[in-house]
Design a protein around this nucleic acid. Structure first.
Lengths: 403, 403
DNA sequence: TGGTATTTGTTGTGTCACCAAACATAATCC
DNA sequence: GGATTATGTTTGGTGACACAACAAATACCA
């Protein structure tokens, strides 16, 4: 008899289910705490008994997901516990293809970048096959430099566009000029050591690096909208510490929220999209600067009193205020995190943006909207892609533990 | 030792957890199927064994959550199974306070309205204490007419405004002229038979009646944005069959999405909100009709070629198109369900609205946006409030089963 | 009309992962 | 050096499920 549950239904629970759940609970408790914890500490935090925690921990240590440190320091009274930390022997490969660069990184469970290669190159209008072949080579070179003991558990690729996650197809990336790109068909998976590859939107993955400081450990913000300023504008919502990807993984497309229906036409077919005001290209054009100019130059012009630059910045801030207030209202969120080129001009944009949000967000009466700036990372998508792979392991450690 | 897990963390799983899970699984399988199912049918659908299903079913029958029917019909070969259906002895009280009416309903697990009272009254600018006292009386009268065998498991109240779900406070309801209303303090809970009361936003609850045909059984749509046209505009998003309420329960506030930042001022403090174009009051005003006029009159005027009415309708459709396209983009949804006064004019609005959505929604290239109309229900919030209570029982049947 | 096949529901038996409690270990305190 | 305290391990008991055998109720067929 077919013993498969119907598609949408929850699965039946059995003995193995509770083991899976508690294995995940112990692992995420170890990874989630800023300081190393002992088995007893985990037991106290999880409502599991010490005996159960001990058994599960031993399995996690055996799988390399958790490392035991030397019990050197002894601050308290009784027998000192064995400090447990994330296993350094487990890591993931994170890749990113962007209009301006390609990046490959190896990140371990402790969140450390073990090895990375970053190549600056203009991929606008490039051939997807060629670009993917090149990132494959980048990954191959990267893997050669790794210590042989390191266990790579998977690979992730961040792409600046709409992605079909299930079949790993990049449906549309206007800023690269790509569409309908079948990634597994074009990227040589042998170059990745035949690791399972998952593909996702760049903003979703970058947002993950804000939500998590390190794989499995929450950052200071658990509910926010991440705005990824690139050539265009990407976005992602994080709710309860998890990226809210929606039914197909296309949620958070904030770049095409309407700011002014009578505004300029957007290549997407609509009019007055946020991207037409606050995208990098749009901001530079309004400021009278060439398309390739660094954002720092725009900021400098504003500070020296240049009128066109000032206008550009004000228009961007106002557009962000209008678009983000709608998004915050709809998602019940009160924090915005600026990334990419918007992070570079964040201090100039923030006062005006916060003012607009305060006027337009319904919940501002009870919760003051806040604007934060993402930490500096030249390829947050690559880090996020590795995090996503590691999070999948953290979410189902039973699959990595030998019985 | 305190055996309580840290706030956000997942709970430890134990033997009882798997019982809880499977009890829920069996119950939702019974409630979720359109036709009565046998124990063996449940076993086939859930990947549980017949013996386990039998044991759990007996407990659910004992608690009144599941009823056994007579095995009269016998279409197949072997021994006919005992048909299982939702228990009719379990029901919930659903209340709704709206600018134009108050409603009280008792809905059983099969989704039948056992008893109801609906009172038309103008509550705009009314005293919250007085209005809540009256709905308490309505509920008291309603309970008197119930069969004594019926077991009420809770009460829900739908309110047209921003609600703080934890402490049951209505923070703001501009269309009633209420704010900071402490419901449990003003509503006599004894009138509700001391049932536990949960308070929620009207649109969230109305959306629930679209997502679920009957408690525990999904409707044909599992991902959509519900637009509740009342005096203003409320909204709710349903994702994967569940209402997406956000961190505080304020998500889906689509009435104040910006349509045109240069548009008319809104009482909320912003400008050009959707409500200023597609709210009932706004539509009637633009059409040159009095504030109390029925929507059918506006529709009739449009059909007879009245220019002002036509303008009103077009403006509403365009505004809905602009606002909803942003919402659909952000939430990764492609279906809109119109309720309230918008449902009454849906056939006139639909063509223009669908056109706007098709132009502005990014994913329209792959998934055609659709506009549906909510079923006729004069107080969907009351039904939804009862559904919410019953869903809570379905979500944790172990709490209602005697060991 | 009675035997066989088929399906449903029930009744043991074994397994697995947990809890509880006792025990062993390693430190501090006096 | 013994009492105290905390960590980690070992042992026995329990609950819920899978598996398999059985009982019950129907259809099919000679």
């Amino acid at each position: 008899m077919a013993r498969t549950p119907p598609p949408g239904a929850a699965a039946a629970a059995r003995q193995a289910t509770i083991r899976d759940t508690n294995l995940r609970l112990v692992l995420s408790t170890v990874l989630g705490s800023a300081e190393p914890v002992s088995r007893a500490g985990v037991a106290g935090a999880t409502a599991l008994t010490r005996s159960t925690v001990s058994r599960l921990t031993d399995e996690l240590v055996g799988a390399g997901l958790v490392d035991e440190l030397e019990p050197l320091r002894a601050p308290g009274r009784g027998r000192p516990g064995t400090p447990l930390v994330a296993g350094r022997g487990v890591a993931a490969l994170g890749l990113q293809v962007n209009p301006g660069f390609s990046a490959a990184r190896v990140v371990d469970l402790q969140g450390r970048i073990v090895e990375e290669h970053l190549v600056t190159e203009d991929l606008v209008g490039s051939d997807p096959g060629e670009a993917l072949r090149r990132i494959g080579e980048l990954a191959r070179r990267l893997r050669r430099g790794l210590p042989p003991t390191l266990r790579l558990v998977g690979a992730g690729l961040a792409l600046p566009g709409v992605v079909s996650v299930e079949d790993a197809v990049l449906l549309s990336a206007p800023n690269l000029g790509w569409s309908e790109v079948d990634v597994p068909a074009l990227l040589d998976l042998r170059a990745l050591g035949n690791l399972p590859l998952r593909v996702a939107n760049e903003a979703d993955l970058a947002a993950r690096t804000v939500a998590e400081v390190v794989p499995g450990r929450s950052g200071p913000l658990s509910d926010f909208v991440y705005v990824s300023g690139e050539v265009g504008i990407g976005g992602a919502a994080v709710i309860g510490g998890r990226v809210f990807a929606g039914r197909h993984g296309w949620a958070g497309e904030i770049g095409h929220v309407a700011v002014d229906p009578r505004g300029p036409a957007c290549p997407c077919g609509s009019t007055g999209c946020l991207e037409q005001y606050a995208g990098r290209r749009a901001m530079l054009r309004t400021a009278g600067l060439p398309a390739g100019a660094p954002m720092a130059l725009l900021a400098q012009r504003v500070r020296s009193g240049d009128a066109a630059a000032r206008t550009s910045l004000d228009a961007a801030a106002r557009a962000l205020g209008v678009a983000l207030s709608s998004v915050l209202n709809v998602l019940d969120i009160s924090t915005v995190v600026l990334g990419g080129h918007l992070a570079e001009t964040a201090e100039l944009i923030r006062p005006s943006l916060e003012q607009h949000l305060h006027e337009r967000v319904i919940s501002a009466l009870w919760l003051r909207p806040a604007v934060e700036v993402a930490g500096q990372d030249d390829a947050p998508g690559a880090t996020g892609a590795a995090f996503a792979v590691l999070d999948a392991v953290i979410d189902h450690p039973a699959g990595w533990v030998d019985r």
